[in-house]
Structure formats: structure tokens, C-alpha cells
Design a protein around this nucleic acid. Structure first.
Lengths: 208, 208
DNA sequence: GGAAGTTAATCAATCGTTTGATTAATTTTG
DNA sequence: CAAAATTAATCAAACGATTGATTAACTTCC
């Protein structure tokens, strides 16, 4: 017989991620997820135990791929500035390649419910911050960077990228661009990277 | 008898804003709002027509107070840099004085439901961006600022502040500070302002 | 006394989840 | 190999609980 077979489980995950991003976790019903994925409602609980189980699986999958990328940079024999530029490039690329998830993550971060999820995100972000912190601190200690408020610089780098992703297209820098259009996204991505690299170069190395 | 008298309406608004911020709009039930405010459930519909009516009223009130503050600055006879510094100070002060609302606003901005609300926030933000845009553009034109990607600089300013408000205390710059503690909040506020003023000064006026 | 404010009780709708049954594929057995 | 037994996947229907909203009666106040 013709058996649809392949991965209704995956279909549920993908539909749920899309819906959670668009309308939020509590704003999405299991019936919507079922309809969107083409699966029966019961399959959600069959595979994931609960609606929250779906959410947790999505976040875990994403966060796993999240953590495993930037580490090597800090071992290269390049200047602190070059390291920082590489991190900016990598970080921007990764976030703009997953804007939907990034929105979801930040939304979750601004809520007090589901503390378990909150902690997970916190830890993932914390690691990235630590990496950047070390690069900048090293640069300051060896005299190649100005003395700056390191944690604030980090907030600036991350905040800029997040702002581009979350704030509405019409409001934000690239007025007529659309992050859902791959071509526009590429342009925005390069613009963000260029800006942040220029900004950090000037701010960290300009003679006062 | 005891007449509670004093503004059950206001109590509902305040309770709802608190809850909406903590657990989101769909994550908050009218029964929770009633309990938290000490009002009967029916009072919500009596005064605001619906749950969404409460939400809209909260947002409208806030946005109204939002728009009416920064305008004067651009008329002062001061340098572009001083104007920008004033805007940064005013903007940071306002956002950190209303962190709960700011979280709510940003969450709403990352959702696709309630487009009416989305547009309202978009317009409010757009006006602030336009103000900053003009100040920086003027500075570039009269030669006092370097040529920069203006909209990206704006994203950096706004993104940095938002990042401080939304990202978790333990992750974000001021590691052991708590935005709910008034004393800590004051310290963070001044640190953000100092950082952004320093950053913009260096980036916009440093000789290359 | 009548308008405004407040209440408990109730409403239909929807929520996430569970159920019992059915189908299709796989494994075991004789 | 094929019949029997077992497992996994899927489904429609229903569950109890909760949702936002409404009702109608009661109280308070001018």
C-alpha cells in the first residue's frame, strides 16, 4: 500500500515552530498545529507527550545547533579585533538564518512562566557572551583596545542584531527590505555585519 | 459600609499590565486579572468591553505618554552631538522607567496577530527613529559627524537599550543587578546612558 | 428613585488531553 | 512460507477543565 510513512513527527515540529513564532505559545492551539501539519491531534501527545513537549523539543534542537559553532575562533592566531569581527559575522549569520526561532527565543526570554526554558536560553546566551567578553577583555589587556564597558559593548552587539530581527521592517534600518525575502535578507545581513565591524573597530581602537 | 470607591477601573488596568507583562496576553486569563485587581470578572467587560479592550487601553495610554516628550530637543540651539546625547538620555530614562510595558511592546511587535496594535507601536517607534535620523543626518551634512549607516546606528542605540531591558539579569551586562530594585535600576540606567553617549561620540566624531 | 457600580451564577466555545478502535507494518512461530 | 501474534502509527470522538463573555439580581450613591 501507499503509506505516507515519513515523519509526521517532523511535520508537527515544523508546523509548531512556524505557529509558535507567528502567534506565540499560548496563542497557538494543538488543533492548529494538527491542521497545519496534516497530523491528527492525538499524534502530538503520542510523540511529544504534551504541547509543551513539542515546544521544549523545538527549543532544545535549536539551542543544540546554536552552541556548537563559535568556539574555534578563540584559538586562531589572529588579533583580538579580527576575532571579534569573526564572531560578529558568525553570530549575525546564525541569527539571520533563523529569524523565526530567534523571535521565539526572545519572546520566551521576556516571560516569567516556564522557568526551565528560560534558564536554558539564558545559559546558551551566557556562553556566547562569555566568548565575546574574553576577546574584548584580552584586547584591552594587551593594549590593542581602548578601555570600555565590556558588558555594555556586548549588549550593543547583540542588541543591534536582535533589533534588526524583531523590529518591524518599515521602522527599522532597511526601510523597504523584507527579511522573508532571501535576497533582501542577504543585503541586510551584510549591512549589519559591516556596521557592527566598523562600529567596534572605531570604538575599540580610535585614538582619543 | 466600606465603599472601595477608588477606581476599580484603574486597579484592573494596573493588574492587567502586570500580568500581561509577566505571562503574555493570551497567557493571562480574565479571572487572573479579576483576582489580582480585587474586582469582579464582570467589571472587566463593564469598563473595557472585552479583554482585548483592556489591552488596547493600556497600550494607548502608554503610547500617548510616549510620543509627547522628545520633540522639543530638536529646536534647541545646541550641537548635533549634544542633541543626540539628550535624546539618548531621554529615551533610556523613559524606557527604563517602564520596563514592564517595554517588554510587552516588544513581545507584541514580534507577533503577527493583532495587526492594529502592531501598527500603532510601529508608528510610535517610527516617530522616535525619525527624530534621531534627522539629528544624525544633520550632523553628517554639516560635517560634524562622520558618514555612517544612519539607520544602523539607530538600531544600535535602540537595540542596546532594549537588550538591557529584556535579556536576563544574569546574562546581561550588569551581572548581579536587578532591574526591579530601584537602586540597581538607577545604576544601570546611568551606565547605559554613559556607554551610549561615549559610543556615539567616538563613532560619529573620531578622526579616521 | 434611578443611574452607576458590583456581584454570583451561568453561558457557549475552546482548550489540551485521553480514549478505544483501526490500520499497516514487523516479528514470531509452526 | 504463511498463519498468528505483536508492535507502531493513526484516527474520530469524547473528556473534563478553562476560557471570555453575559445575564439578572442586588447594592451603593446622588
Amino acid at each position: 500500500m501507499k503509506t505516507e510513512k515519513i515523519d509526521k513527527k517532523q511535520a508537527i515540529l515544523e508546523a509548531a515552530e512556524k505557529l509558535f513564532c507567528e502567534t506565540g505559545y499560548e496563542g497557538t492551539s494543538t488543533r492548529q498545529i494538527a491542521k497545519e501539519s496534516g497530523a491528527n491531534m492525538a499524534m502530538i501527545n503520542y510523540y511529544f507527550g504534551s504541547k509543551e513537549g513539542v515546544f521544549i523539543e523545538i527549543m532544545n534542537n535549536r539551542i543544540a545547533g546554536f552552541a556548537s559553532q563559535l568556539r574555534i575562533i578563540n584559538e586562531d592566531k589572529i588579533s583580538s579585533l579580527e576575532k571579534l569581527h569573526k564572531v560578529i559575522e558568525g553570530y549575525t549569520n546564525r541569527i539571520l538564518a533563523n529569524t523565526a526561532f530567534h523571535k521565539m527565543m526572545h519572546r520566551e526570554l521576556s516571560l516569567t512562566q516556564r522557568p526551565e526554558m528560560y534558564d536554558k536560553i539564558k545559559d546558551a546566551m551566557g556562553q556566547n557572551m562569555l566568548l565575546i567578553d574574553r576577546i574584548i577583555t584580552d584586547g584591552i589587556e594587551d593594549g590593542s583596545f581602548n578601555k570600555v564597558d565590556v558588558r555594555m559593548v556586548i549588549a550593543t552587539i547583540m542588541g543591534t542584531i536582535t533589533n534588526i530581527v524583531i523590529a518591524p521592517n518599515k521602522v527599522v534600518p532597511c526601510s523597504n527590505f523584507d527579511l522573508n525575502n532571501p535576497k533582501d535578507k542577504k543585503i541586510i545581513k551584510e549591512r549589519v555585519i559591516a556596521h557592527l565591524q566598523d562600529l567596534t573597530t572605531v570604538y575599540l581602537t580610535a585614538k582619543k
